[in-house]
Simulated scan of single mutants.
Amino acid sequence: MRQVIEEYGTVDSVKLIVDRDTKKSKGFAFVEMPDSTEAGQVIKELNGAEYEGRQMVVKEALPRK
């Protein structure tokens, strides 16, 4: 995942979310990027793209209410 995102800019961190019991990916991740312009480009280019046989949903994470 990091390598795909890094094609668009600098990545500070990638946190893949995994199931505690099975240790398998839950199918989503959080990526932090220092540059909002680059992050916007990632969202624009990769939302809807296929990654490892699955369609990606790429959007800005918002705080819970």
Rank of each mutant, 00 (worst) to 15 (best):
R2M: 02
S25W: 07
M1H: 15
G53V: 00
I17W: 07
V4P: 11
T37M: 14
V58H: 02
E50H: 05
Q55E: 13
I17D: 00
R2Q: 06
G27P: 02
E7I: 11
T22R: 03
F30H: 12
F30R: 14
D35P: 08
V4S: 13
A39S: 07
A39G: 00
E32Y: 06
K24N: 01
R2I: 02
E32C: 11
T22W: 06
S13I: 12
N47F: 01
K26V: 06
L62E: 09
R54M: 13
E52A: 13
Y8P: 06
R2H: 06
T22F: 07
D19P: 13
A39T: 03
P63R: 08
V58M: 05
F28M: 04
I5R: 01
S36D: 12
R64S: 15
V57N: 11
G27R: 04
E60V: 00
D35H: 08
N47E: 04
K15H: 03
K15P: 07
L46K: 04
K59L: 08
F30N: 15
G40H: 09
R54F: 12
P63C: 03
K24A: 06
E38K: 05
T22E: 04
S36E: 14
E50Y: 06
V31F: 07
S36Y: 11
E60A: 07
L62H: 04
Q55G: 07
I17K: 00
Y51W: 01
L46V: 02
I5P: 00
Y51I: 00
G9D: 05
D21N: 14
R54Q: 14
A61Q: 05
R20E: 13
A39L: 04
R54G: 10
E45A: 01
Q55Y: 07
A29V: 02
V58Y: 01
V11S: 05
I43W: 03
P34D: 13
I5L: 12
Y8L: 09
A49L: 11
E38M: 09
A61W: 04
T10V: 15
V31G: 10
V31T: 11
G27F: 08
V18Q: 02
T10C: 14
R64M: 15
G40V: 10
Q55F: 10
G48W: 03
M1D: 14
V14M: 04
E38T: 01
T10D: 15
M56S: 02
V58E: 05
Q3L: 15
E32W: 09
P63N: 10
G53Q: 09
E6K: 10
N47L: 03
T22S: 09
V42D: 03
V14S: 03
E38D: 12
L46F: 05
D21T: 15
R2E: 01
N47A: 10
D12N: 09
T22A: 05
E45C: 03
